[in-house]
Design a protein around this nucleic acid. Structure first.
Length: 152
DNA sequence: GCCAACGTTGGC
DNA sequence: GCCAACGTTGGC
């Protein structure tokens, strides 16, 4: 039984349209320990991912992806010239992990925070909580279904 | 651009 | 281990 997640991205950096174009990507650059733990331990092959556009117009959920490869080390942390380079992360003992995500669908319209907040189920989502900065968040099956309904 | 909320760092 | 200072996130 696949689990459900919400991954944040600033669309000016990487958007659902970018994901649709490249088909599949390594979700690199997550540099938060709580998010790391989920990427390393909890996000499994086949899990569904809501792609959330933050710092955007409109802000909200833009589509769905599927986990095509579970947690493995984030190679960008080893690359001295990469902006996500972290000298503390060593190949023999990596600090940072990522998963690969394949594009599944782009919603016909972004599901805005207002729309989520108006839905009796979706309004409970972590992403709506004030100060919710976690970039990898768990989503319940019911919340996921509610978002898909709102996307129609 | 503002600023509240949060995570991390580092002095003690 | 505490906690103030700092940097970042992200909605508005």
């Amino acid at each position: 039984m696949p689990r459900h997640w919400l991954f944040k991205s600033e669309p000016s950096v990487f958007s659902i349209a970018d994901l649709a174009r490249v088909k599949s990507t390594s979700w690199d650059g997550v540099r938060n320990y709580q998010a790391r733990n989920m990427l390393r331990d909890d996000v499994k092959l086949g899990d569904k991912v809501l792609i959330y556009h933050s710092n955007a117009e409109p802000t909200g959920i833009a589509g769905v992806g599927t986990v095509s490869m579970p947690g493995h080390p984030d190679e960008t942390a080893f690359d001295r010239r990469h902006e996500h380079y972290d000298p503390k992360s060593l190949r023999e003992n990596p600090t940072w992990f990522l998963v690969d995500v394949r594009h599944e669908q782009t919603f016909p319209h972004v599901i805005t925070r207002d729309m989520l907040g108006s839905d009796p189920v979706a309004k409970g989502m972590m992403v709506l909580r004030k100060g919710s900065r976690l970039s990898i968040q768990p989503v319940t099956p019911d919340e996921f279904k509610a978002v898909l309904r709102l996307a129609k």
